[in-house]
């Protein structure tokens, strides 16, 4: 039943993508509103899924394997977009984010089977906090990624003086710039917090820090990269275009660290 709920969620997001596409191409005037409602429906289904999983597994944050991790990533992204960034919602954002959601849920349903290389971690409050911080950081980076993609498209439209559909439908450059920088800032802070909490928890639970774990190393690297870019942006040393390119490239690294580490051995193996 739980898996079916996840499939329904993916289906809603897929429909939302279609509605966004219709609205964007000017063929469905009400597409944008319909897409938003479909995303809400999908988000509610995903929330039910996690409530059911939490009840079944007896844990507050039911993330115990790769499938859960990917689905929870999608849930966090939908939460940040639908709830925290309600004012920034637009058909162009939806158009970029819904395929990401479908991809994550598709991977959760078909691409990631349950493997439990290590015993399940205990339901320690620090572990919960670690998971939540990390996933909301990833969701923030996804928002920053979407804004980065849209910024580069709109910039191209304005530079090439082509007043086409993208020019009309996409938000202003400076608005997109804010949506690159702000979520990047939240994400970097949350991820730094997740790493620090993760260290504290591993020390408390296993008596050792997981410095040599590949996922930990990549995550530390990602945090430092985002932190450096933010520092340069705050000091006005980096242009918006460069920040946009970084937000897109760095998100690829986030996805890589998320999915790629499943092929690497390490202490995060239960997630991979």
């Amino acid at each position: 039943m739980a898996k079916e709920l996840l499939a329904v969620t993916a289906f809603f997001y897929l429909l939302a993508f279609g509605a966004h596409l219709l609205s964007f191409s000017g063929k469905g005037e009400r597409g944008n509103r319909a897409a938003f409602r479909l995303m809400q429906a999908g988000f509610i289904c995903a929330t039910f899924y996690f409530v059911m999983e939490a009840a079944t597994l007896g844990t507050f944050v039911p993330v115990i394997d790769a499938s859960h991790a990917l689905a929870f990533f999608a849930w966090s992204l939908a939460f940040v977009y639908l709830v925290l960034l309600a004012k920034a919602q637009s058909e162009s954002f939806g158009l970029v984010l819904t395929p990401v959601l479908v991809f994550l849920l598709g991977m959760a349903l078909f691409g990631a089977h349950v493997r439990r290389g290590n015993p399940l971690p205990p339901a320690h409050p620090l572990f919960m906090l670690h998971i939540l911080s990390a996933f909301f950081a990833y969701a923030s980076f996804a928002i920053s990624f979407a804004a980065g993609v849209l910024y580069l498209i709109q910039r191209h439209e304005l530079k090439s003086k082509h007043a086409g559909t993208f020019y009309h439908k996409l938000p202003a450059l400076e608005d997109l710039e804010r949506l690159i920088d702000q979520p990047m800032g939240w994400g970097a802070l949350l991820l730094a917090g997740a790493v620090a909490i993760g260290f504290a928890w591993s020390k408390a639970a296993y008596g050792a820090y997981w410095f040599s774990d590949p996922k930990t190393l990549i995550t530390v690297f990602v945090t430092l990269a985002y932190g450096t870019v933010l520092f340069l942006r705050l000091g006005s040393h980096l242009r918006a275009r460069q920040a946009a390119i970084f937000s897109v490239a760095a998100f690829a690294l986030v996805i890589l660290s998320f999915i790629g580490t499943r092929f690497l051995h390490g202490s995060h193996h239960f997630l991979a």
Binding site: Q154, L158, A163, Y167, H168, P171, A172, L173, E174, D175
Partner: peptide, 18 residues
């Protein structure tokens, strides 16, 4: 969509600066 030259200039400015 703006049509007169001054209005197009304002529209473009809003596409850059919000």
């Amino acid at each position: 969509g703006a049509v007169s030259i001054p209005a197009v200039a304002v529209e473009l400015a809003e596409k850059i600066f919000g």
